[in-house]
Simulated scan of single mutants.
Amino acid sequence: MAKPLIVTTESSQWLTNSYLVADRPGGTGVLIDSNGDLQPLLDAAREHDVTIEKLLLTHHHWDHVVSHAEDAQAAGGVPVLAAKETAELIDGVDETFVHGEIIETGDLLVEALHTPGHCSDHHALVVRLRGDGADVAPTLFSADVLFRGTVGGTVNGGPDGFAQLKRSITELFAPLPDDTDVRPGHRAPTTLAAERADNPFLRVWAGTDPEGDEAVEIVELREDLDGPATLVLWAPDYDGGNKAWVRYADGRDVIVGGSRVKRT
C-alpha cells in the first residue's frame, strides 16, 4: 500500500522539526512548520520532483514559524496556512483553517485538529492518502503536544493548560490505530503503540504507574509558579534533559522543564 513521502529537517538551534510531506514522488505536497532550516526540504522536493503547494503551521511559537514568510517564497510563493487563532498572533498567514477541516493537496488529505494545552492555538495534523493509501495507517504530526517518550510543557497553556493537554492527547489517540506513525515537532519519530506502552506521562494517566509525592521547589519559572510543589512525575525530555509534572498546594497541575525543578 502507498504511503506518503516524508522528509524531515531538524534545526540544530532548537531541535525543531520541519517536514516535506507529499502524496508520491512526482506528485504534490506541503511543508509543515518553518524552523529556519528548510533548504534540505526544498532540495528533496526537487530531487523527488514534488510540487510544493502550501506551507502549514501548527502553532505560533517562534521555533516553528521563524522563517515562514521567506520559506513560502523560496518554495515558489506558496500560501501560508495556519489556524485562525495562530493568524491572530503572527503576521504572514495567507489562509486559515479550523478544527476538523481537511486540507487537500493532490491525493494528500491533511486533517487539522485543535489540540490546546501547550498553547491555545496549537493544532496537530493527521495525514492520510486518498485512494489505495486510505487503507494505510495515517501519520500524525503532533507538533508540541506529544513527543517520543514525553509530552509538551503547559506553562504557556493558560490556567487549564494541563487539563487541555491531557484531553488533547486522549482525543488524538482515540480514533487512531496503534500503528499510526507520529512525527513530533522535536526530535525522533515514534508510534502511538510505543507511546501507549512506554510514555511515562501516559502510563500515569492510565493508572499503570503511580504518581510521585516528592516535595520540590520551582525556581526562576514565573512569579505565579515559583515556589513549593509536589513532583508527580520526573521523566526524560526530548532534548536530553528532563520534564516534570508538578502539583501545587492549590491543586494546579503544570508540566515544566526539569531545569526549573529544585530537588532536595
Rank of each mutant, 00 (worst) to 15 (best):
V7H: 08
T8F: 04
T9L: 00
Q13K: 13
L15G: 06
N17L: 00
P25Y: 03
G26Y: 04
G26L: 00
G29I: 02
G29R: 04
G29K: 06
V30E: 09
I32C: 05
G36A: 06
L38D: 12
Q39M: 12
A45T: 03
K54T: 10
H61M: 10
V65T: 15
D71H: 01
Q73F: 03
A75C: 10
V93H: 02
I102G: 07
G106M: 03
V110P: 00
L113A: 13
L113W: 05
T115P: 15
H118R: 05
S120P: 07
H123W: 02
L125T: 02
A134H: 08
D135N: 12
L140K: 07
F147P: 01
F147V: 01
G149R: 05
V151C: 02
V155F: 10
R167I: 09
E171L: 14
E171V: 09
F173E: 07
P177T: 09
D178Y: 12
V182Q: 11
R183A: 12
R183H: 13
G185L: 06
R187F: 13
T190Y: 07
L192Q: 02
R203E: 05
V204H: 08
D209T: 12
D213V: 11
E214A: 14
V216A: 01
L221C: 08
R222W: 00
R222D: 15
E223P: 14
D226P: 09
L231T: 09
W234E: 08
G241N: 09
A249V: 14
V261S: 04
